[in-house]
Computed example of a mutant assay.
Amino acid sequence: MKIVCIGDSLTDGFGVPKVNAWPNVLQNELAVEINNKGISGDTSSGMLARFYHDVLTNIPTHVIICAGGNDLWWNVEVNSILANLYSMVKQAYHHKIVPILAIQPTIHAEFVDRETVWEPIAGYQHLQENSNELANKIMSMAKNNHFHLVDFRVPFLNQQNEPIGKYYEGTDGIHPNELGHIALAKQASQTIIQIN
């Protein structure tokens, strides 16, 4: 098994040492080769443009596609993001690579330091609303087309009596800390194990 993870800062590991980004944690957990192709600030259209070089030429068995956060930051239409995701999934299938769509973690604006973090173009409330809409539509697209899916919201929603802040301590409320990346890796691992 060989996995490429294509994404933005959440995949790249913004705010944590690269060795602690979830693709690297996942590599250690599964003992398989994983290439981290996350680029901070990238959009779904940027990932689509580099999909051939970063994914197809690496000839992986699986690709995890985690996109949409930066698109939403700039208030890009949700359907445009879905179209880019769909195109990447179809390219993967065409090249006999197993695609896995990812739903990005929930945004926790309550942890944002408004003095040091830039404001989304349409504000945080709109960003959160669009993030929920995108998550629901990715889930629906995956279900209707039988695509594989990893829901990165789950580790941050099922915290019985545990403070969610432990995953965002010292961050901007969007990018998890090292504990958060461990949780993301475990969620991805569960999905991959179910597939194989």
Rank of each mutant, 00 (worst) to 15 (best):
L82M: 13
Q128N: 07
L10F: 06
L72F: 03
I103A: 05
A67V: 09
Y86H: 14
S45D: 11
L82G: 11
S45L: 14
W73F: 15
S44V: 10
E33H: 08
D71R: 10
Q128M: 15
S87Q: 15
A31M: 10
K96E: 12
Y86T: 15
T116F: 06
S45E: 12
V78K: 06
Q125C: 05
I103M: 08
L127Q: 06
M47I: 10
N28M: 11
N58L: 15
V117P: 00
G7I: 01
E110L: 09
V112D: 02
G41T: 03
E77T: 09
I64P: 00
Y86N: 14
L101D: 06
I103W: 03
L26S: 01
T11H: 00
V98C: 13
R50W: 08
H108G: 07
K37Y: 07
L10N: 02
G68T: 07
L85E: 03
D54T: 07
L72P: 00
V16G: 02
I107R: 04
W73C: 04
K2F: 04
L30Y: 06
T57A: 09
I59S: 14
T43P: 02
K90D: 12
A21Y: 00
H95M: 11
T106A: 12
H108Q: 12
E29Y: 06
G41H: 01
N36R: 01
N70V: 10
L85M: 08
I81C: 10
A102I: 07
N35W: 13
H126R: 15
P17G: 02
W74Y: 13
A49S: 14
D113E: 07
I65N: 05
H62S: 08
I64T: 06
V98R: 06
A31N: 11
R50A: 09
R114L: 14
S87R: 15
H95W: 12
N24V: 09
Q125G: 04
A109R: 13
D42A: 11
L101V: 07
W22A: 05
L101K: 02
T116R: 09
S9M: 03
G38A: 03
Y52D: 14
I39C: 02
N70L: 06
I97K: 04
E110C: 14
Q91G: 08
D113R: 05
T43V: 08
A109K: 12
A92G: 09
V76Q: 06
S9N: 00
F111K: 03
N28W: 07
V78T: 14
K2L: 05
I6Q: 00
E115P: 00
R114I: 15
G15V: 04
P17L: 01
V78E: 07
H94V: 10
N35A: 14
A122K: 08
V16A: 03
H62P: 06
Q27F: 01
V63G: 06
G13I: 05
S44M: 07
K90A: 12
F14L: 15
I81A: 07
H95G: 05
W74N: 13
I6Y: 00
R114P: 04
D8I: 05
V16Y: 04
L30R: 10
K96D: 10
V98N: 09
P99D: 00
L85S: 04
R114H: 12
T43Y: 07
W73R: 03
N24E: 13
G69A: 14
A31Q: 11
Y52I: 10
A67S: 09
A122Y: 02
